[in-house]
Design a protein around this nucleic acid. Sequence first.
RNA 1: GUGCCCGUAGCUCAAUUGGAUAGAGCGCUGCCCUCCGAAGGCAGAGGUUGAAGGUUCGAGUCCUUCCGGGCACGCCA
Length: 627
Amino acid sequence: MPADRSEFDPVELLTHAFRQAIASIEGAPADADPLITPSKRAELGDFQSNAAMPLAKILGRKPREIASELAEKVGPLLSDLVEPLTDADIAGPGFINVRLKPEALARLLAQLDSPALGLEAPAEPETVVVDLCGVNLAKQMHVGHLRSTVIGDALARLFERLGHTVIRQNHVGDWGLPIAMVTRTLMEQAAQGKLDLDAVTLDDLDRLYKEAKAESTPPTAKLKMWRAWARHPKVDAEFEDDVRTLEGEHEAAEANLSASKQTLVRLQNHDAEVEAVWQKLYDVTIAACLDNCARLKTRITEQDSAGESSYREELAPLVADLIERGVAEEEAGGAVVVRVGGIEEPCLVRKSDGGYLYATTDVAAIRRRVRTLGAHRVVYCVDARQALHFRQVFGAAHKAGYATTGAGEAKLEHAAFGMVLGEDRRPFKTRSGENIRLSELLDEAIARAGEKVAESSPDTPEAERLPIAEVVGIAAIKYADLSNDRIKDYVFSYDRMVALQGNTGPYLLYALARIKSIFRKAAELGIDTAGFERAPLAVGEPAEKALAMQLLAYPSSVRRSAEHLEPHRLCAYLYDLAGAFSGFFEHCPVLKGEAGVRASRLRLCALTARVLEDGLETLGIPHVDRM
RNA sequence: GUGCCCGUAGCUCAAUUGGAUAGAGCGCUGCCCUCCGAAGGCAGAGGUUGAAGGUUCGAGUCCUUCCGGGCACGCCA
């Protein structure tokens, strides 16, 4: 057991002692888990070990008898940490309840009160690549990107907080026929003087994208239907014009498509003229994306962009390598697939026309991330509908040996997330079925937060309220996204997310602001707070103890959240911490007590504030001192 | 058709991956501001965890079969 952990974390300390005690039981396996958890019910104890029941099964003995022996053996190992164990502490089938000594609790808390807050950097940091954001050229960001960006950045921050090396990768959709279509349309319109290339906006591009797609989609099915109808002589005459129009559209679409394909070929061949226009598309899109990322207070920067286009030269050699080594097979029609054990559908990496697909690019990305970037772990924060795709791609990469490092196989994980739904439980869109722009979503959240701030702090001048509203709005929208179980769909509601009560971002910010307010008040009243940072801690009141216990759980909460790739666990922790603080605030006056109590409580407040801030920053949620 | 995900209080969500009496918030019923921020706290009502079996000391959690909802299933990304 590393010394740094055992210093303050009661679960670690108890686990260590119980493990030793278990080892001294006749016939017990050396690696048995002591199963230490905090008690759900404070009246039973602070922590419990559930080790006796599984041991009883292995040893063929009665669980309560084992619990009794365990309690007896562990007692001497824990004499300075917990109250003496008696038979009364063995309950139910064989739960062992332990209660921390008050002085031990204070001691552990003092140890937690360090710059690292109990989260020391690991001796050997891992490199973690987090795939996030995933914007597409010429498209406005919308709710789908919100989750990938916010959850992805939170996961990245969780690993950073644990001391690992994190590389964010924005796998920009910047390649392929659709992009070539917009590029072509943009070139045409610029040539016709309809658009100024230097003044083009993402709105223009978004519009062009839709136009280009419509213009290049031949109405084949519709035309077939009309032609079938038109065989009847009477109908023929009547609808002749319509069929002719459709035929014309069809022809035009085919021509557009063919022109786009040529544009793609020119792009692939680094044609300077086409590439310059493509670059324009790229710059405009990425600028808008980074702007949203900045507003969302993420750590995603330009350096993190690694678009599909950056893999273009690697695809042909990659597929050749796969074929050569027998990892992939070429089918009769010329398509190339990788068959992965346990998955029915093969992974297609080359089309019969010789073109490559997004699976090819994703395999190439894994290879680069593991081999060049040195990833021990690659986490994909991508929507759940792509689950099969990633199973295929991960399988193909493993089979090809592209995920193999000197230390073994890199962990490839899909941190899948569910959809954002409207209050009607259907995908969150406008009434007309359009995607809602991410930037508008942020504007609205900030506006609603502004109303709340104005309501509750009417005395604050507007100039001060605006930056507060910005932070509260962003915190609200991010917390709403992060606090739900990632895999599930969730219902988006402005009213609920900016609410100041309940499990919301603003509630956490409020708790923090209240703590800060105590220190402001102390200064205002001229109360001497000098030296409270190292004051002896006294944890006597139940509310104080509840807060202390919650604070001690911080490091394990962060670790668990990262381990499971589930930010909502840390959210729940922080919400409970804010609740524990509110209880403390209500029942334990800080500034009114005598000097000793006051210093101890001030220290508790300061520690709570630091844990709250640290937790919020670990999730990427901005906060304010006053709201 | 096959596969994956989800189903928990009226509503929105948790439940430390198999632990004791399934917890919060909103809404509802009561209290608590001469008191550090009431954006708060305390108490109450509200549940056959979609259904039925199974596994075991113990199941919201695991296995099987259904029911209901969502999504995905090679030449788009």
